[in-house]
């Protein structure tokens, strides 16, 4: 088999895959839209119980990590491998921090019985139950994507250390960065919808 490299093709493939990821979350946003229209006041009451401070902190973290991964790519293209690896480490660290904060938020909700099947949630009006169900599914699925993104970046870091990802062949880092930006982008929609608008 000949292995001809087609960096443009590889990026195109990644973009197409990202479209499919967007539509995966699209289903959840669709449910959000319909149920928001049906239960506006219950959704507002649910939204007020989320911790805006932690949510804002996580948003800042993700945006910063998007910056660091973009910088890592430019560093690689300039041949500064050491810097590139440091920036990748910073990005991975940010993703772990994000998941930790998310965990703290979830734990607080679980402590109050606000989880699907929880005693407290059962007593709330139907619309609020829907709100919290959607909240857990959406942030859970997003958290899973953060984990996948972090794993992808970790792998890329390993390849960079071995020199398999380099200034001449940066496509793996380009694609992991694209994926990471998507994870960030989806959060940029989740954050206002659940924490701010309501």
């Amino acid at each position: 088999m000949t292995t001809q490299r087609d960096a443009f093709g590889a990026r195109l493939g990644m973009w197409l895959f990202l479209f499919s990821e967007l539509l995966l979350f699209g289903g959840l946003f669709l449910l959000y839209a319909v149920y928001l229209a049906r239960y506006p006041s219950e959704f507002a009451a649910g939204g007020q119980q989320l911790d805006t401070l932690l949510g804002t902190g996580n948003t800042l973290l993700l945006i910063t990590s998007s910056l660091t991964v973009a910088l890592a790519l430019s560093a690689l293209q300039q041949g500064r491998r050491q810097l590139c690896q440091m920036l990748l480490c910073a990005t991975i660290l940010a993703s772990l921090l994000f998941l930790t904060i998310k965990g703290i938020e979830w734990q607080a909700k679980f402590g109050h019985g606000l989880f699907p099947g929880g005693a407290e949630l059962e007593t709330l009006p139907a619309g609020q139950q829907i709100f919290f169900s959607l909240y857990f599914v959406t942030t859970g699925l997003h958290g899973l994507h953060v984990l996948i993104g972090a794993a992808l970046l970790l792998w890329t870091l390993g390849l960079t250390r071995k020199g398999l990802v380099s200034a001449e062949n940066p496509v793996m880092l380009e694609n992991s960065a694209l994926y990471w930006h998507l994870v960030d982008l989806i959060w940029i929609f989740i954050f206002p919808l659940y924490y701010l608008l309501l």
């Binding site: 979350f25 289903g27 829907i130 699925l141």
Partner: peptide, 20 residues
């Protein structure tokens, strides 16, 4: 992917009962 999220929701529904 829309089918993907739909079957995920039914699976989670069966697992922990979302009520969606």
């Amino acid at each position: 992917p829309v089918l993907g999220i739909t079957v995920i929701l039914v699976m989670v529904e069966r697992l922990i009962g979302l009520g969606l």
